[in-house]
Design a protein around this nucleic acid. Sequence first.
DNA 1: AGCGTGTATCGACGGTTGTCGATGCAGGGG
DNA 2: CCCCTGCATCGACAACCGTCGATACACGCT
Lengths: 130, 130
Amino acid sequence: MSKQAGLPVTRLPMVGQDTVCCVPMVREPLGEADAAGLSRMFKALSDPVRLRLLSLIASHEGGEACVCDLTGPFDVSQPTISHHLKVLREAGLVGSERRGTWVYYWVLPEALAKLSDLLRAPAAPAEVPA
Amino acid sequence: MSKQAGLPVTRLPMVGQDTVCCVPMVREPLGEADAAGLSRMFKALSDPVRLRLLSLIASHEGGEACVCDLTGPFDVSQPTISHHLKVLREAGLVGSERRGTWVYYWVLPEALAKLSDLLRAPAAPAEVPA
DNA sequence: AGCGTGTATCGACGGTTGTCGATGCAGGGG
DNA sequence: CCCCTGCATCGACAACCGTCGATACACGCT
């Protein structure tokens, strides 16, 4: 327990937000450092509750939602929701801010776009090796 | 165990390959079932070794690579590589086939495209709530 | 100041995951 | 036929993760 100053709020260290940008991973091999950073973001997406949380936040009116809007639709406890939100925040996928009594979360579109571009595939299997 | 018939080869059960297709998760909330299936795919991407494996396979000449090409670049043992390839295969991200002595792996572009589309964000933060 | 509500943190517990060495199986070559 | 190589599986172990109840903290209100 080292940090307890209310809330880290908004900008966090993020992971590898600037290590790799838009090069699809299907074109050239990922470096170890890039893979480490990216895997942390994908790990944040590897839980069904977090996936639904993210989608719920993003599709919420105004592009943001307070925690009170997010605890309802799930069967898990409020501390668990809070934990998942923290994971999403530390992965650089969402931002957060306290406004009065409530804490609001929103999606960071750059992060999603980065992952989306990375996974972008030639779609058409027009390779046909030999 | 239960299955040991050489190799499952090529088509596996996959996860939720057909549950959701192209709707970005930022537009409407994900259902529980969709989230469960998708989280399994993201979980397969949540390890740096698997991420590099996938990228190595995809960017390999001809779009495929044999395991012998994949064990070299990593510090982990061959059984571990084999384990990671199995995870990728069961997540529906890669296909595999035995050809003589060697086993080849290739990326399934539809799977990557599906995830890429899902993560596709409006990019422009033109929301500005209230 | 005191209280009530909203949210984060703590500590614990069980299940899952990544890793290894040892072993098993498949196929090609002497 | 036997061995050698390539790859998968097994069993074990430590580390990590999701979850909970209890508790602490931050604010607004009265």
